[in-house]
């Protein structure tokens, strides 16, 4: 079991970090504004996965004391990262919505989404 947990350790953290890096790569190198926003939202997803993974506890169950199977509720995963991620997801959505509205307005003015054609201020 230790070994499997070790695999999961590398896999989950690795994929969370990879998601972040992919998102950052897209946000930094892509030319299309919508692609940049998409990259930012993928970056957010990666961070959220990272936070949940930190709160996970081996053999734990969800932090909800529902009736029925009380024997499983001795070990519970950490509820705090979950609460924080809840907040972070909603905030991330707010930022994405604002970003997309900015993109729409930029398109209205410049009639293009390509960042190298919009760039009037120094980037």
């Amino acid at each position: 079991m230790e070994k499997y947990l070790n695999i999961l350790n590398i896999a989950i953290y690795g994929s969370a970090v990879l998601l972040m890096l992919i998102g950052l790569y897209g946000a930094l190198t892509k030319k299309s504004l919508i692609k940049i926003v998409l990259g930012l939202s993928i970056l957010d997803s990666g961070v959220h996965l990272l936070m949940i993974a930190i709160g996970y506890l081996k053999d734990g169950t969800a932090p909800i004391f529902s009736p029925g199977n009380e024997d499983k509720m001795n070990i519970m995963v950490d509820p705090i990262p979950q609460a924080l991620v809840l907040t972070a997801i909603v905030i991330g959505f707010g930022v994405t919505a604002v970003a997309l509205s900015l993109v729409i307005r930029l398109y209205r003015h410049h009639n293009t989404l390509r960042i190298d054609e919009i760039k009037k201020l120094k980037w």
């Binding site: 972040m20 950052l24 946000a27 504004l33 940049i36 930012l40 970056l43 957010d44 961070v47 990272l50 936070m51 930190i54 990262p81 924080l84 972070a88 905030i91 930022v95 604002v98 970003a99 900015l102 993109v103 307005r105 930029l106 003015h109 410049h110 919009i118 760039k119 009037k120 201020l121 980037w123």
Partner: peptide, 27 residues
Amino acid sequence: RRDSAEAAFKFLFMGAIASTFLLIAIM
């Protein structure tokens, strides 16, 4: 105006990346 949205987008870009870093540090 034309450029204000661009400035805001730039600010948003940096702010969004910064907020993920802040979350990492907190975690």
